[in-house]
């Protein structure tokens, strides 16, 4: 599979580049929008949850506490949320040409990853503002990100292929994602919810990932390995399901889009 991706690297590169260009083509502020959205969210949420209603934030300024989990969440949310449209919106190309279909999913992931990378400028700014210097354990963010990307890819394969056949998928996904934002430790800390509910919370595979980022970046601690292992296993399972589904359904995409 990796080999196949490599064979199609020119294709993936060219299309990712154009995907990124076309998104902001007709907007005045262009790429700045990538930063404006999370910054705006951060300001509003910080005012709401540290001024109006005070939420415990693990002893860290709320804005920094929020951002470390909000940015990876937005990355997840954008990529998975947009994934239902991947196949449907490329209907022209799909009906015209027989190319390597999984490349389309990878292109979306790549362009969202580039955007995510740019939003990290915002994170650096916020951490700098509060004089928070991440320690050596911040390197744990790399394997955590890896787990997150596997999970995203699995969901993207699954949802893009399923939505080509059954359009309900594209209607349900944003609702579930919106619920996910509240049911994941983004705006609040995993450690500040009552102990009896923590176990239920831990069933959410994003809990280990988002809490892991906080441990690594804000507290210079390794992530909770049990939670992260659970997320990892979940990611692998969803990836395999997504990949098999996609491979089974891709042969007749041209008939249904």
């Amino acid at each position: 599979m990796a080999l196949k991706f490599w064979e199609n690297k020119d294709f993936i590169k060219t299309l990712s580049k154009r995907e990124i260009i076309s998104k902001y083509k007709q907007s005045l502020l262009g790429k700045l929008w990538i930063l404006i959205e999370p910054m705006g969210l951060m300001i509003v949420l910080t005012i709401v949850f540290s001024v109006f209603v005070r939420l415990p934030s693990e002893g860290v300024p709320y804005a920094a506490f929020l951002f470390v989990a909000l940015l990876p969440w937005l990355y997840f949310n954008k990529a998975v949320g947009a994934s239902t449209r991947i196949i449907v919106s490329s209907s022209g190309l799909i009906r015209q040409r027989n190319f390597y279909r999984p490349a389309l999913v990878l292109i979306k992931l790549l362009s969202e990853t580039v955007n995510f990378g740019m939003t990290l400028i915002g994170l650096i700014a916020v951490l700098g503002y509060y004089h928070i210097v991440p320690g050596i354990n911040a390197l744990y963010a790399i394997p955590i990100l890896f787990v997150q990307i596997i999970m995203m890819l699995g969901l993207m394969f699954l949802l893009s292929a399923a939505n080509a056949y059954v359009r309900d998928v594209g209607l349900v996904t944003p609702i579930i994602l919106r619920l996910g934002r509240y049911l994941s430790p983004v705006m609040y800390s995993f450690h500040s919810i009552p102990a009896q509910y923590q176990l239920i919370m831990a069933l959410n595979p994003l809990t280990g990932i988002l809490d892991g980022y906080r441990q690594a970046f804000l507290h210079n601690q390794p992530p909770n390995m049990t939670l992260l292992l659970y997320s990892f296993v979940f990611s692998i399972v969803i990836f395999v399901i997504g990949w098999i589904t996609f491979k089974k359904l891709e042969k007749n995409f041209a008939d249904v889009v």
Partner: peptide
């Protein structure tokens, strides 16, 4: 007419195709 990306220019679309 299928296979073109509407927002991109003709030239970009030559590359995409």
């Amino acid at each position: 007419g299928a296979g073109f990306q509407k927002e991109l220019s003709g030239r970009e679309n030559i590359y995409m195709n």
